[in-house]
Design a protein around this nucleic acid. Structure first.
Length: 304
DNA sequence: ATCCAGGTACCCA
DNA sequence: TGGGTACATGGA
């Protein structure tokens, strides 16, 4: 086991929040130890005070994976400044709660392929189901590593399987998306790499062309794998948090009954600024705590 | 049992 | 562009 001292520039960092916030689905905790797979290597990590005790990976790669070099305090203060500029200095109890709930949460640097497949699997499912589904895919199509872990399947592993076989991993109707998208990536192996060197807008357009990839999945990949922090994935939780908690969003949706996906994105970008995606992730992490601090209706965040 | 979940594709006006 | 609906499956 190796030790990484969490020096001031790596703080704040919270391992539990980072690995249990719905951005990645393969890590699991036993006792104080988290176990996962990074780049086909089994990695264990635990947090003890201001130290990370870890194994299976180099310090350099660990720091990179958890994005410890990012000045998180500056990210938060940049978001705060954007809010202040937007409101003219009013308080924001929602973001206060999100900041507290997500203190030390870091958006990690995830492998684009794994991220893409994971979020195709994620649609219309809750997080426990997603974890289970991806775990099945890995044990069935990945390669066995040590300690009962499996590597994440490569495009060929999924593309060469027939759709009915993929369906056995509780993928349901998503099996066809997985089959088609992995087939495309098998034929176009540079596709995901190339997204890193084109504009955010172009990369998003390209991603959405993939079968089973719409705005939400594309935005998750852009945020969690390519670290475009201004990107705001809008799921049902974020939709209700924004529409209930920030009524101003409705002024952007005109006469429409409901805010569109882009109405919510545009508001978040205007309100939270260039780190809107980070703000989104903090709000998502706090989603269970938010109803009680909504200004008026303390019923449920889910009610519009 | 019923509703819901880190949505997308497809059809229609 | 906007609005409706089917889609498979498991969690709560």
């Amino acid at each position: 086991m190796k030790i990484l001292q969490l020096s001031p520039r790596y703080i704040p960092f919270d391992l539990d929040k980072t690995l249990d916030c719905g951005q990645v689905f393969r890590w699991h905790k036993t006792g104080d130890d988290w176990t996962g797979v990074i780049d086909r290597k089994v990695v264990t990590v635990r947090e003890e005070g201001l130290k990370l005790i870890y194994d299976g990976i180099d310090e350099k790669d660990l720091v990179k994976y958890f994005n410890l070099d990012l000045d998180l305090a500056r990210v938060i203060s940049t978001i705060r400044n954007s809010i202040k500029k937007f409101t003219g200095g009013e308080t924001d109890p929602l973001f206060d709660a999100a900041e507290k709930a997500g203190e030390g949460l870091r958006i990690i640097r995830q492998d684009p392929w794994e991220c893409l497949i994971s979020f195709i699997c994620s649609q219309n499912s809750n997080i426990p189901s997603i974890r289970r589904r991806i775990s099945l895919l890995c044990s069935r199509y990945g390669r066995p590593l040590t300690d009962g872990q499996y590597s994440f399947p490569v495009p060929e592993d999924l593309a060469k399987s027939d759709t009915d076989h993929l369906r056995l991993c509780s993928t349901g109707y998503r099996a066809l998306y997985l089959s088609k998208t992995s087939g495309y990536l098998l034929e176009n192996p540079d596709f995901l790499t190339s997204l890193a060197s084109i504009s955010l807008k172009e990369a998003r357009t390209e991603l959405i062309k993939l079968p089973g990839v719409g705005p939400k999945v594309a935005d998750c990949v852009l945020l969690f794998a390519y670290n475009h922090y201004q990107t705001v994935p809008v799921d049902v939780w974020i939709r209700s948090i924004i529409t209930c908690g920030y009524p101003l969003v409705h002024t952007r949706s005109g006469e429409k009954k409901e805010c569109s996906y882009n109405d919510i994105v545009d508001f978040c970008r205007a309100y939270f600024g260039i780190y809107a995606g980070y703000a989104q992730q903090l709000l998502f992490a706090a989603r269970r705590d938010l109803p009680e601090i909504f200004p008026e209706s303390s019923d449920s965040v889910k009610e519009m």
